[in-house]
Write a protein that binds this DNA or RNA. Sequence first.
DNA 1: GAAATAAATGTTAGCGCTAACATATTCAAA
DNA 2: TTTGAATATGTTAGCGCTAACATTTATTTC
Lengths: 340, 340
Amino acid sequence: MVTQSEVAKRAGVSFITVSRVINNKGNVKEETRERVLEAIKELKYYPNSLGRGLNSNKVNTVGIVIATLMGVNIHGNQFYNELMSGIEGICIRNSHDMLISTQKKYPGVEYDYLKLYYERKIDGIIMVSPNIPESQLRQIEEERIPCVIIDDHSDEHRISYVDADNREAVNLAGDYLFQKGHRKMGFLKGVENNRNAQDRLAGFYDVIAKHNLDLKEDWILEGDFTVEGGRDALRKLVAQNNLPTVLLCANDQMALGVMAEAKNAGLKIPEDLSVMGFDGIEAHRYTTPILTTMRQPLVEMGVAAAEMLFEQINNTDYVQEIRIFPVELISGESVKDVAG
Amino acid sequence: MVTQSEVAKRAGVSFITVSRVINNKGNVKEETRERVLEAIKELKYYPNSLGRGLNSNKVNTVGIVIATLMGVNIHGNQFYNELMSGIEGICIRNSHDMLISTQKKYPGVEYDYLKLYYERKIDGIIMVSPNIPESQLRQIEEERIPCVIIDDHSDEHRISYVDADNREAVNLAGDYLFQKGHRKMGFLKGVENNRNAQDRLAGFYDVIAKHNLDLKEDWILEGDFTVEGGRDALRKLVAQNNLPTVLLCANDQMALGVMAEAKNAGLKIPEDLSVMGFDGIEAHRYTTPILTTMRQPLVEMGVAAAEMLFEQINNTDYVQEIRIFPVELISGESVKDVAG
DNA sequence: GAAATAAATGTTAGCGCTAACATATTCAAA
DNA sequence: TTTGAATATGTTAGCGCTAACATTTATTTC
C-alpha cells in the first residue's frame, strides 16, 4: 500500500510537500510539483481518505438515508430513483461520494438517523421520506448538523427541507376533476403517520368543502402506498356497490393497483370509473389508459436538496431554507370528461 | 465531539478498556463493561470509523459502482433498483454501509473503477454493468481486490461475477415464439460494446439458425436500450414497409418504446405486430397489452453478488466464483399465437 | 501457601494524514 | 551589499483508534 511518505521518498522531498501538492495548498516550486506528480503517477498513489478525514474533518461524503432502503417503500422505487439522480449530479459536481445507511429497521425501535453522521464524520445528510423522532430533530437543530429533508418536514424545527406542495396539488387535482364534471369523488389515502399523506388528505377535504361536494365516508379508502393496497381498495370499493365517478389516489403505485384490479373486476376505466394518480412515476405512461397524475419535479427536488446541503456544508452560518415545489398536472386518459 | 478517552474518564478506566468493550475483544469484568456501556450511553458516544479504519483496515463499507449512476442508463432504473435492494439486504445483515462512487464520466476517458477502493479503503466493490478497462481488470485479479461484477464479465480474468444466461434466454424466447407460430422474427439490438447485448444478439442468431428461419437484415435493428431508441426503431421498421410478425427486443425499455410508438403508428399489438421484451422490469405489468418478457431474477442476483463479496471479504483465500442465473419467461399478452 | 495459570487492566507505538510552527532559500528593494 | 519580505521546504505533534506487549490482580492446582 503506497503512502505519502513513499511518494515523498521517490520524489526526493518530505511528505508534507506531497501533501501540499495534492491539496494545492501553500507554495511549491513548479519543478518540485512536477516531480511529485510524476512520483504519484508512477507509484499509483491514492490519498487515504481515512487519514485525511481524521484531522481535517472533511471526508467528501454525503450521507443518504432513504425510507425505501430501510425496507419501507412509500412511493415506489421510481420516486427515489429520480430524486437520487438529481442528488447524484450535484454530488458529482462537488466531488462528494454518497454513503447509504443500511441500518436495520425494527418495528417499534427508534431508527438512528444520525448514526451515519456521528460515526462516519460525513459532511452532511439528506433524508428522504424519513420519520424522525423529536429528540433527533432537536439534535440536528442544536448541533447544526448539515441536513436537508426531502418529502417530509416539521414546522417546529429550523431544519431545511425540500417538498412538493402536496395540499395545493390535491386542490389542483380536485379542481381539474370538478371542471371535468365529477361530483362524486373518492380518495385513496396513504399511510397515516406520513406527513405528506396527511397533507394530501387535507387537500382532498379542501376540495370537498370548496366545491360543496358530498363527503361519503365509504369513498375515503385506507391505503398503504403500495400496488397491492390499491388492488385491495378497489375490491373494497366495488363490494360496497356504490361507486364514485372518480377515485383520486394518494400515489401512483396505488393507482396502478386500482387500474389492474379494475380490469379483473370488469370495470372499464375511465368509462365506469375515472382514476387519478399522484407522483408522476415513469410507469404511469405505459398504462392503458395512460394514467392522469400530478407530477412532482423529483429530479429538480433532488438537485435542490443537494445544493442546499452543500451550501450548509460550505457556509458556517446556519440558515434554514425551505423550498416548496409546485406539482404539475399530467393529463392522461384515465379521467373521463362527464361535463359535456 | 465525544472520544473514547472521554468515555474512559467517565467510566474510570483507560481508553483501551472502552475499545475492548466496543469490539467485544479481550477480557473485561462484567461490572466494568456495564460501567463503560453506561458512560457510552450517557455521553452519546459513537466510535469514529475513521480512526478505527485507519489501523484495522476494516471500514465496514461496500463500494458500489453502477453504470446508471454514472449517467449511462443501460437497463432503465427499475433494473438497478431491484439489484440494489438485493444487495442492500445482505449489507444490512453484515452491518456494512454502501458507498456509491460519483466520479464524473467523460466520454473517451477511462473511468477509474478502483479509485473508491484505494482511497476509501472499503472492504470490497460490486460493479454493475461496468465496462472495465483491461488494465484495471488485471489489477483486481493481481491484488485480489474483493470484487463481484454483475451484468458483465470477462472470460480472461479470474474475477467473480453474477450474470443471467443471456444467450440461452434469447434461445428460450425464440423457441417460444417459434412454437407460437412465428417465422418472421425481428430483433432490436442493444448497445454494441455491452457484453450482454452481444450475447443476446448471438442468441438470436442461434434461433434463426436452429429453426432455419430467414435472416432479414432489415429486421435487425440498432437500439440503445432506451425507450426513445425503441420508438426510433419502430418508426424505422414501419418505414421499411415490410414487417416481421414479431419483434424481440434486447430489453424492456425499448419494448415499451416500441409499443408506445406502435400506438401512434396505428399498429395494433399483438394483432399487427407481436412484441417481446427482456429483463422483466416492473413496468411491463402495466402495459396494455401486458408485455411478454424474459425475467432476470434481479433481487436474487443482487443477493448472490453481495453474498459472494462478503465471502471474499471474510476469507483470505481468493476463489473465483461464477453464478449464472436462469431467465424465466413471463407470458403476457403482447405475443400473438399465429400457430393455430 | 507457593507456583502456575488465567483474567483484568494499562502503556506504548503507530495507522496516514494535515495543521501549525520552524527553518532555509530566493528575490527584490534600499 | 544588507535587509526584509516572499517563497519554498521541513519538523513536530496529534486527529481517534487498535495491535502488541506489559503489568497487575484474581483464581486455580498441588
